[in-house]
């Protein structure tokens, strides 16, 4: 297998490519690039329970996007599993030091292995990171009406003020999570 396929891509290759998806989906069929809507479509499909926010024709509104997100899973499988980078991620030395002080030493793979192992769900820290973190992502993106793709890329590309506000919120929350919440949580057993 050619070594090249295993290498991660630099930002100047990945960035412009990521930026192409908003215009591409718009051109293909007036679709608005945004992944978090799929959480809503899935809820609508599984348990609408008479909630107005979830009561709509999810096949019609979200069928294309659910196909898109199924593709993301396939893409992750190809690029992360079949052609995954065997080397530890090349983050800054200062990040390695910061993470080591939080007890994260293994930088191979895409996530800290121990923290995201199934056995981790039996610990408070693993439960808060995986279940709590997931809940915050789902609640927050629904409340904000979009995530990094819908607001951060699509909304900003359409020069919309709400998306710039949301992007500010993403970062404010991220900083709070990184410097306050994460050290507390990773300190738990």
């Amino acid at each position: 297998m050619p070594e090249m396929l295993l290498h991660p891509w630099p930002w100047y290759v990945a960035g412009p490519l990521i930026g192409l998806f908003a215009p591409l989906l718009l051109w293909l069929g007036n679709r608005l690039f945004g992944v978090s809507s799929n959480l809503r479509h899935l809820c609508s499909a599984i348990a609408p329970r008479g909630i107005p926010y979830l009561s709509y024709d999810w096949r019609r509104e979200g069928g294309w996007n659910l196909a898109f997100v199924a593709g993301i899973v396939v893409g992750g499988l190809l690029a992360g599993l079949v052609f995954g980078n065997p080397e530890p991620v090349a983050v800054a030395a200062s990040t390695r030091a910061s993470l080591a002080s939080l007890g994260v030493h293994d930088l191979t793979g895409l996530v800290p292995r121990e923290l995201f192992a199934w056995s981790s769900l039996a610990t408070a820290r693993g439960w808060i990171v995986i279940v709590g973190g997931g809940f915050l992502v789902g609640f927050g993106t629904a409340y904000a009406g979009g995530c990094t793709s819908g607001h951060g890329i699509s909304g900003v590309a359409n020069l919309e003020k709400p998306s710039f506000i949301a992007l500010g919120g993403f970062f404010a929350g991220g900083l709070l999570g990184t410097f306050v919440l994460l050290p507390l949580v990773l300190g738990l057993r």
């Binding site: 992944v35 978090s36 799929n38 959480l39 997100v69 993301i72 899973v73 396939v74 893409g75 992750g76 499988l77 190809l78 690029a79 992360g80 599993l81 995954g84 793979g109 895409l110 996530v111 995201f116 808060i128 990171v129 995986i130 709590g132 973190g133 997931g134 809940f135 915050l136 992502v137 789902g138 609640f139 927050g140 993106t141 629904a142 409340y143 904000a144 009406g145 995530c147 990094t148 793709s149 607001h151 709400p162 998306s163 506000i165 949301a166 992007l167 500010g168 919120g169 993403f170 970062f171 404010a172 929350g173 991220g174 900083l175 709070l176 999570g177 990184t178 919440l181 994460l182 949580v185």
Partner: peptide, 30 residues
């Protein structure tokens, strides 16, 4: 946008993933 964005940001820092990456990570074997 401000409140929802901040709540999402907290979750992003914990999981290290926004919605797209959640699905990509699942595919990659996490």
């Amino acid at each position: 946008y401000a409140a929802g964005g901040t709540i999402f940001g907290l979750g992003w820092a914990l999981t290290g993933a926004c919605p797209g990456p959640l699905f990509a990570l699942l595919g990659s074997g996490v």
